[in-house]
Amino acid sequence: MNTLLRIFLVVLSGLATGSLAQAHPHVWVTMQTELVYAPDGSITGIRHAWSFDDMFSTFATQGLESKEKGKFTRDELAPLAKVNVESLKEYDYFTYATADGKKAELTDPAAGYWLDYKDQVLTLNFLLPFKAPVKAKELKVEIYDPSIFVDFAFAKDNPVQLAGAPKCKLDVVLPREMTFAEGKALSQIPVDEKNTTMAWGAQFASKILVHCP
């Protein structure tokens, strides 16, 4: 029975290897995020500016009518912005916030969201208000797609800004990427062997941490 078992294991690990690899990103988002504070020091909302990669921007604007070819005004993009924001609801806007370790609820974007089209890149601007303003010593905001269909990365310049909370300390944690050496070492583990020696996971979440006094 042992030989049989071994064969089954090899087949299944072969199948599982493929299955374990999830969908890879088909959409890349470069983000600039602003945390909006009220005068009393509580956070009221998260303002996102998400720029999509050129392929997805082209795809998303396919078939849209515009006065000038290859250019889109904010008005012409308004219907698309509406679809974008409405379909993001299903994914909780890919934004997850906790205040002092407790989940802080966000609500649907305030009216006044819009799409820009510049240099063949679409940028979605929207404000996610908190259900109730939150005061927290430690605020954590994570932005990621659990299914990794959309890849989120902070912009190099001004990735995160605090609006109206000058006394707080801001940290931006970038997702950890696998190094070349790690990738190579991993590829040398036989597929029918369990990876126990290198039990790490690459964190794909972009994280914002705010510590207030």
């Binding site: 290897t17 374990l20 690899a21 999830q22 890879h24 990103p25 088909h26 909780d92 997850y96 994570e142 990621y144 797609d145 659990p146 299914s147 990794i148 890849d151 990427e177 696998m178 990738g183 991993l186 590829s187 583990i189 597929v191 990876n195 290198m198 039990a199 790490w200 996971g201 690459a202 964190q203 794909f204 979440a205």
Partner: peptide
């Protein structure tokens, strides 16, 4: 809703295909 993790051989495949795409 935990942050996704991808390691091992699968993670490598993931990184490669994203790179090519």
């Amino acid at each position: 809703r935990a942050a996704p993790e991808a390691g091992g051989f699968a993670g490598w495949i993931l990184a490669k295909q994203a790179e090519f795409y």
